[in-house]
């Protein structure tokens, strides 16, 4: 990991010096122990802040979209011939590149507006899972070394194996290496366990309808509508979200159970062919709602019905934007 970090800093410095990127989005050490936080590097000197380890959680593709959109809006009042292009560099793992591909497929920006620094990934630590594992103790200091997390906590010294606290989505990840990149750092990581990726979904599908509904309502009762999942999701970039629209008002803003259910149902349903299973929504959720159980079904449907895995190739079309006459199933069509 250290080696990748050094190379990453060198690359970032080079890209900024050669003016191939105006800003580089990466991760820096977080303010709390055992965390990493997104950072924006604009000068070569700052590049030494960059880190790359198993604590880099959030999908940074969200910020690429935010920055480019903000820049384009700021250029609206500039004469067309004087408009400048901003190139955003990004430190991207497999799922981040998938999100970038989705943005490119959806024509959000051009390929030359983003400079992808690909890094191999071997999963990130699920912060909430780690906290549970150490019995809720506060972490004072911590290091990751050779597959072990060593911590000084309020409850004494503790050691946890890294593979026991990896996020659920990482354990069954199929795309842990960048799919597209301008600069690739390090050698590809070994594959995770993608064959097991739909096991939880299949198990849930086998339950009865009432059991499934009971689980859905139980999970949605936890949700307090903070919209953190939407804010962090790279595929949620509408200028006005349906949640905030008042004419027409698609979903109530109150605490009614049905409003929460409709909000979550609609947000998840908008992810058909767009959810890359990066786990950002799950990791930011303050209430620990099991969003992945439902989002993974959408991924599974996309694969089984249309043979599409979101953002898995630059050549793909979004599955809801096309139709396959010979292979699409028709049993859902109502034919009395």
């Amino acid at each position: 990991m250290e080696n990748i970090e050094t190379k990453l800093r060198e690359e970032a410095k080079r890209l900024l010096l050669e003016k191939k990127a105006d800003v580089i989005i990466g991760y820096e050490k977080g303010t709390l122990p055992l965390t990493a936080t997104p950072c924006f590097i604009t000068t070569p000197e700052e590049a030494d802040k960059l880190v790359w380890n198993n604590l880099c959680t959030q999908n940074l593709a969200k910020f690429v979209h935010d920055l480019i959109t903000a820049h384009k809006n700021s250029q609206k009042r500039v004469k067309p011939e004087d408009r400048k292009k901003k190139v955003v560099g990004i430190v991207a793992r497999g799922c981040t590149t998938r999100s970038l591909i989705i943005h490119l497929q959806e024509r959000q920006y051009e390929r030359d507006e983003v400079c992808i620094i690909g890094v191999p990934c071997d999963g990130y630590v699920d912060g909430k899972g780690l906290k549970v594992k150490i019995g809720g103790a506060d972490i004072v200091e911590g290091t990751i070394d050779g597959g072990q997390i060593k911590m000084k906590t309020s409850d004494g010294d503790k050691t946890v194996a890294l593979k026991d606290v990896l996020a659920e989505c990482c354990l069954t990840c199929r795309f842990n290496n960048p799919i597209v990149s301008d600069v690739l750092i390090g050698s590809p990581s070994p594959a995770m366990n993608p064959d097991a990726e739909y096991n939880a979904v299949k198990e849930f599908e086998a339950k009865s309808m009432e059991e499934r509904w009971a689980y859905f309502t139980k999970e949605m009762e936890k949700c307090m509508r903070c919209n953190a999942c939407r804010q962090t999701c790279p595929s949620c970039y509408c200028p006005t979200c349906f949640v905030e629209q008042s004419q027409p008002q698609w979903v109530g803003i109150g605490e009614d159970k049905s409003d929460t259910q409709v909000f979550q149902l609609m947000r998840m349903y908008h992810m058909v062919g767009r959810c890359v299973d990066c786990g950002s929504c799950v990791s930011v959720c303050p209430m620990g709602v099991d969003l992945r159980k439902f989002l993974k079904k959408i991924d599974k449907d996309g694969w089984e019905m249309f043979g599409n895995r979101a953002g898995s190739s630059m050549e793909d079309m979004p599955p809801l934007g096309r139709y396959d006459e010979h292979h699409d199933k028709e049993e859902f069509i109502f034919n009395p």
């Binding site: 499934r212 009971a214 439902f294 079904k297 959408i298 934007g321 069509i333």
Partner: peptide, 18 residues
């Protein structure tokens, strides 16, 4: 495509128990 949207919506509603 409407038909793909309906196919996934129906499947997803079933999945969450509606």
């Amino acid at each position: 495509m409407a038909r793909r949207k309906f196919a996934t919506l129906k499947s997803f509603l079933n999945y969450i128990g509606v």
